[in-house]
Write a protein that binds this DNA or RNA. Structure first.
Length: 912
RNA sequence: GCCGGGAUGGCGGAAUGGUAGACGCGACGGACUCAAAAUCCGUUGCCCGCAAGGGCGUGCGGGUUCGAGUCCCGCUCCCGGUACCA
């Protein structure tokens, strides 16, 4: 008998599969298809354990589907534009393309070591001109269709660096490079009109997506129903406002405009101008950090202007305040302090009037002076003229009778209209970056904009960029920037590039014809493969990638980009209806693998004893001298629990205590202390990264795959445990030994039981793989391993039964551990690859038990368990239960009131 | 605050309203070994008991049910998302 040597067999089979083209997928209308996609990685340089965790179970599912008889397409690619490549370019003066392609090369071979069935001939790389040509083409089509447009957006602008920064490049209101302040500035940008699809994106009909993702997208879109009401300034300018509570209009005692609102200048009284402009300046300079620090204390200034409330003609003051956002609704609100918490706080701070218009149920009528807080509950309308007496409920929109009545009144009196507002903003797709797809437009001298003609696509990124100075290298590159318009006049190219999320919004289509020349994808391929049947990846993409790709698909559908595909479908007798509304039918998200749990810091504490607890004056990590020395086992706020010997000492750490953590520079605080079992994300700086290559070298890819599928609840993830992996390795070694041991040639007396276990395992594993329940699938296979080990060498099973049982083990394990099963498959004399073999068929009769354990309960508590024939009747089961001495002992003097029989499971005797 | 998810042995985790803790890790005891590793056998939710056996037990408090980890009501805590959203 040979020993299991994963290194050799894995290398051998990966090369062999590659040479045989085992995983090439091609259209075959005679077979059912399964299109599985797992999110493409960013080529950061190294594959980490998270990639394995996401990709290898997805691979197992694709393999399972293939063995079930589906023609499976499972492609892979790279999301290759992005900031890290720019940073590398700036730091090392290498071209981002060079850096990126080198990383891709490296990561490809690492991904290959996983042994996945990726069809590499369909690989797409988003920074390849052959790919981004089509990203540009999509932009052009969207622009023509009015789905792309130019508008203004607030961006993080660094006056020092003269550049726009991404949110992650801004730390504490300052840029990460030189630490100078960053301000919010309105700038011209390219947008995609995703809000046109807001309503359609709220519907998840016909797709199987996880509830958390649906909820996040729904929240993100943020649909709210109400009315748009037009207030007028005393000068006659219209100030439309959106409100979800038009029923409280009679209680509007002032208005608030966003500081950036267009009308601020014209409504401001002469004597208020200086104060107002000062406030506007301050608001523009406020960073994210300031806003958070302020903890929603409301500030604002009176413009001195007044507006007319359209429902009662009252003249009310107009203020500006930064709690009103320019980007939401109309950038102006009517303030109803009696029934809105923010307006209430603002009114109280600045002494503005408060007029209640809802009389709370079962309470005395409130007055503006007596209210302690805004009232937002149910009641009856008051002080509201024609609407007085209308009931107010907690319902939203027209479902609330008071809101419905108010909308009707507004429409009848021409003061406003029913309206729906969304939180979702249009998608800003331009980036002030150079490592992204160029946007295919040119700016004419006369200010006009031209789309680059299709036959000139792609607009290629230049090779000879200078990354060393500040600002955009594309802007400085004359050869790129200067061009001519269609009429020959001088023009400049757009120097912004496309958001990388745009490139990843349509990549699942490029796999369907990666070298197709006349369209972004091949309709012949798309007709067969679309839509994606299963999509797997991280849930962190809920509101970005996963929403953008839905939008993209819907837009493509509406622009007729699937028309040719639909024709091919019809020609093959497939109804295209509903196939282009959503990109992915089924979505599943894996969780995240976190760093391994580690011991807490060893701390030395100086301090004084105050009763049972200590009060620290100094805490030193790794210190050797102090009043209390031990391992930090828990920290809650500033209370430490320190294990000293066998007991736990409680230590309070006041603010003035000195904390010293040698590993962390600068002044330390109590929250930086690391306590026992604390789990953190993996990162190089924390030193808790698990390197999959090391694991593959030590145990083999099959073991890593099996362990990752076994040791976690896949959708939840959790901390890595370096000890547990040996369980998966022992399991595969046992499989190896079973697969290479001589066949049993026993009596056959154990055949029936073995065959039963075999078919029960087939049913379980099939169900678990279908439902992404990897851990229970592997557990079922381990149980089956235990069963096989319990009969091997005992001489109780016949040769055919044994061979059949081992064959089934290999087939069921093949999706999880593809190499070892392939090797054993060949060694055992099978023809062809195990990965092309048919999934074992389940035989219900073979799986049936003939003896079952009947659980006997008395008043719902288990009192006995007896073995009975599986075919036992209800009456027999009842009789057997009542005959049990243990049941009889419990029944005792009592009266049996009823007996509940659950066939095949239990009998519950109910005693008085 | 709002939305979503969760809480089960020392740990990861199993359980269509019907035997709670499958499977694995770890730990403990034993075998093999000069020894260690590896391997094999056994034990392993907690409490009482020499044992037979008994009691308790799925974050907390109620409820529905013959029967609740699972369903309902009310909480607590943890994780994720989001947040002056009018």
């Amino acid at each position: 008998m040979t020993t299991y040597d994963p290194g050799t067999i894995e290398r051998h089979w990966q090369e062999r599969w590659e040479a045989d083209g085992l995983y090439r997928a091609s259209v075959d209308w005679s077979q059912p298809k399964h299109y599985a996609v797992t999110m493409l990685p960013y080529p950061s340089g190294d594959i980490h354990i998270g990639h394995w965790y996401a990709m290898t179970p997805s691979d197992a599912r694709a393999r399972f589907k293939r063995m079930q008889g589906f023609n499976v397409l499972f492609p892979m690619g790279f999301d290759a534009f992005g900031l890290p490549a720019e940073n590398a370019a700036v730091q090392r003066n290498v071209h981002p393309a060079e850096w990126t392609w080198a990383n891709i090369e490296r990561m490809r071979s690492q991904i290959r070591s996983m042994g996945c069935m990726f069809d590499w001939e369909r690989e797409m790389v988003s920074c390849d001109p052959a790919y981004y040509r089509w990203s540009q083409w999509f932009f052009a089509r969207f622009l023509e269709a009015g789905l792309a447009y130019r508008g203004e957006a607030l961006l993080n602008w660094s006056p020092t660096l003269q550049t726009v920064l991404a949110n992650e490049q801004v730390i504490d209101g300052k840029d990460e490079r030189v630490g100078q302040p960053v301000i919010q500035r309105l700038m011209e940008q390219w947008f995609f009109a995703i809000t046109k699809y807001a309503d359609e994106l709220l519907s998840f009909e016909g797709i199987d997506w996880p509830e958390p993702i649906r909820a996040m997208q729904t929240n993100w879109i943020g649909r709210s129903e109400g009315a748009e009401v037009v207030f007028r300034t005393e000068g006659g300018d219209a100030i439309p406002v959106f409100t979800t509570r038009p029923d409280t209009l009679w209680g509007a005692t002032f208005m608030v405009l966003a500081p950036e609102h267009d009308l601020v200048g014209s409504v401001t009284a002469a004597d208020r101008r200086a104060v107002v402009e000062e406030y506007q300046r301050q608001a523009a300079g406020r960073s994210e950090l300031d806003r958070l620090m302020d903890d929603r204390a409301k500030t604002g200034v009176d413009t001195g202007g007044r507006a007319v409330n359209p429902v009662n003609g009252e003249h009310i003051p107009i203020w500006i305040a930064d709690y009103v956002l320019t980007g939401y609704g109309t950038g102006a609100i009517m303030a109803v302090p009696a029934h809105d918490g923010r307006d209430f706080a603002f009114a109280r701070s600045y002494g503005l009037p408060i007029v209640p218009v809802i009389h709370p149920e079962g309470e005395p009528e409130p007055t503006g002076d007596t209210m302690a807080e805004a009232f937002v509950g149910a009641g009856t309308m008051i002080n509201s003229g024609p609407l007085d007496g209308t009931p107010v409920t907690m319902d939203k929109g027209r479902a609330n009778p008071s809101v419905a009545a108010a909308i009707d009144w507004l429409q009848a009196n021409g003061a406003g209209e029913e309206a729906v507002n969304f939180r979702l903003r249009d998608w800003v797709i331009s980036r002030q970056r150079f490592w992204g797809s160029p946007i295919p437009v040119i700016h004419r001298e006369d200010g006009g904009i031209e789309i680059v003609p299709d036959d000139e696509l792609p607009v290629i990124l230049p090779e000879d960029l200078d990354f060393t100075s500040t600002g955009s290298p594309l802007a400085r590159h004359e050869g790129f920037r200067s061009t001519t318009a269609a009429d020959g006049t001088p023009a400049t190219r757009e120097i912004d590039t496309l958001d990388t999320f745009m490139c990843s919004s349509w990549y699942q289509y490029r796999y369907l014809g990666p070298r197709h020349e006349s369209a972004p994808f091949d309709p012949e391929e798309a007709a067969y493969w679309l839509p994606v049947d299963t999509y797997t990846g991280g849930g962190e993409h809920a509101t970005m990638h996963l929403m953008y790709t839905r939008f993209f698909t819907k837009a493509m559908r509406d622009l007729g980009m699937f028309d040719a595909t639909a024709k091919v479908m019809v020609a093959h007798g497939r109804d295209p209806d509903g196939h282009f509304d959503e990109p992915m039918r089924q979505l599943r998200n894996q969780g995240q693998i976190l760093g391994e749990e580690r011991p807490g810091d060893i701390v030395a504490i100086r301090g004084t004893k105050d009763g049972e607890r200590w009060v620290a004056s100094a805490v030193t990590v790794g210190g050797a001298e102090g009043d209390v020395i031990g391992e930090l086992v828990r920290r809650t706020e500033n209370i430490l629990q320190v294990a000293v010997g066998g007991s736990v000492v409680v230590v309070e750490v006041p603010d003035e205590a000195i904390i010293e953590i040698p590993a962390i520079d600068g002044a330390n605080d109590v929250t930086q202390l690391r306590h026992h079992l604390e789990v953190q994300r993996m990162s190089k700086s924390k030193g808790n990264v698990v390197n999959p290559d090391d694991l593959v070298n030590a145990y083999g890819a099959d073991t890593v795959r099996t362990h990752l599928m076994f040791a976690f609840d896949w959708e939840k993830g959790g901390p890595w445990d370096s000890r547990g992996i040996v369980g998966a390795h022992r399991f595969l070694r046992d499989v190896w030994n079973l697969g290479t041991s001589p066949a049993e040639t026993g009596s056959g007396g154990g055949d029936r039981a073995l065959r039963r276990a075999q078919h029960q395992t087939i049913a379980r594993v099939s169900g678990y793989l279908e439902s992404f329940s990897w851990n229970t699938a592997v557990a079922a296979l381990m149980e089956y391993r235990n069963t096989l080990q319990s009969v091997v060498g005992k001489g109780v099973v016949s040769e055919p039964a044994w061979i059949d049982a081992v064959t089934t083990l290999l087939l069921l394990l093949a999706p999880v551990a593809p190499h070892i099963t392939e090797e054993l498959w060949q060694r055992r004399g099978h023809q062809g690859s195990i990965h092309e073999a048919a999934w074992p068929e389940f035989d219900e009769e073979a799986a049936a038990e003939d003896v079952i354990t009947l659980v006997l309960q008395v008043n719902g508590k288990v009192r006995d368990k007896i073995e009975v024939p599986a075919g036992i009747t209800r009456a027999e089961a009842e009789a057997a239960a009542l005959a049990s001495p243990k049941v009889q002992a419990r029944v005792g003097e009592g009266t049996v009131r009823s007996v509940i029989v659950v066939p095949g499971r239990l009998v519950n005797v109910v005693v008085e």
